[in-house]
Design a protein around this nucleic acid. Structure first.
Lengths: 232, 232
DNA sequence: TAGATTGTTAATCGATTAACAATC
DNA sequence: TAGATTGTTAATCGATTAACAATC
């Protein structure tokens, strides 16, 4: 076991590494150096090696990292090799879009239940799933072994819904309401805030020359030269 | 003019400050100290003062900051006081959800045009907007003075669409495809990646005790005691 | 053995924050 | 004037990265 804790920055890069590695595996590349992989994802090679080391993932000096092993190890760290059934709270436009989005299941996050408070929605069917009343959260979550809640209600309802899903035993929340959520320790919230993203865009738009380092911008080319790049 | 450049971290906090300030303004609070506002948004007060200073926003020693002035100044910095017409590329579930999402217009980002390549979608109407073929990007973007493109196509199409919107003069992109985009300097891309967010959640879920610092988690109470908090 | 590449130390960088002089 | 709070300096912290000994 490594002494090094895994930093949030490292966790954020893992999905990026994984995607690039899956491409390499598809192209039958068996071994990859930190230099090559890091160039593909636009990260410094020392950072990449340090990230892997913090997960106790090792390579072979003089050779590099085994691609299949890397895919397996990062997948395991990210929990990508198991299913995390999801509940979507809020059956509005966005909630229905998520329920219909095949990417959820493909990525191991199948939507198993939908909830709303609107009497005209409760009882209807979206993407072959019945829309439950929010009051049924505890029983439905229990029944389906749901571990992740995606909150797509209007902002006013966000905190109440968060309280309800936490009370029902949920410890991972993906929050699309603009509101910040107050949750107990041990519950993880990720904020996806469209309005904030757009406002950040308009900030740079307005500033003209966008001297802006992006979250993750990268470009992979397995066969040819590898180019990593960010707008500056 | 301030010497200090505005860091990306600062820009990311501005929308959070603004939302809290709007609440204060609604509650008829005329003046606020950095201590109070920073507590409300869960940020250190020195960080807040530094953020404001980097935008040349000043307060009054011994008094604090004028709320209305702060709202105006941050709004102006974020470009929130003007409209940024948006094009949505991809008329699938998510694209249609965005077109129907009233929050876009409310926040100053009205969806003015929809695009797709699917012949069965082109010509149809979504949220009172005709779905154009992607080939029409240049003319439609020109006609509506569109400055922001939201890409919600399948990942495979992401780069081609990005190239097309950039060629059509767009300099701000909100990218929902999981793919990284290679864009020229001066074009700003914000990545909104559902799969990555979910994978990060499952990482912490799996680790059990989530020792996780959230992007922006905050809690505002204008009247009573102010509590800032993040799950640890 | 010679070349390549890891794993990690030590230097660097940038961002956060404590602390306090300036000043309302 | 006394109290409050800004604006900013200097210290601190954490993350990135250059550099290199270890070793395949």
């Amino acid at each position: 076991m490594s002494e090094t804790p895994v930093s949030d920055a490292t966790v954020g890069r893992l999905p990026v590494y994984l995607r690039s590695l899956v491409d390499l595996a598809k192209a039958d590349v068996s071994s990859v150096s930190s230099a090559r992989l890091s160039a593909a994802v636009g990260v410094n090679s020392a950072t990449l090696r340090r990230d892997l080391a913090s997960l106790d993932i090792t390579g072979t000096r003089g050779v590099g990292y085994d691609v299949k092993y890397l895919v397996a190890a990062i997948s395991r760290a990210l929990g990508v090799n198991q299913e995390w059934p999801v509940a979507v709270i809020g059956a509005g436009n966005l909630g229905r879009a998520l329920a219909n989005y095949t990417g959820m299941s493909e990525r191991g996050f199948p939507v198993r239940a939908l909830f709303d408070v609107d009497a005209t929605k409760v009882g209807s069917t979206v993407a072959d799933l019945p829309v439950h009343h929010v009051d049924e959260l505890p029983s439905v979550i229990e029944a389906h072994g749901i571990s992740v809640a995606v909150i797509v209600t209007p902002p006013e309802a966000g905190q109440a819904v968060a309280d309800a899903v936490v009370a029902a035993g949920i410890t991972s929340i993906l929050n699309f309401t603009g509101t910040g959520l107050d949750v107990p320790d041990g519950v993880v919230v990720r904020q996806v805030d469209l309005a904030t993203e757009l406002q950040i865009l308009s900030f740079y738009q307005q500033r003209g020359t966008a001297q802006h380092r992006l979250g993750f911008e990268y470009f992979v080319d397995v066969d040819g030269p590898v180019l990593a790049h960010s707008s500056t």
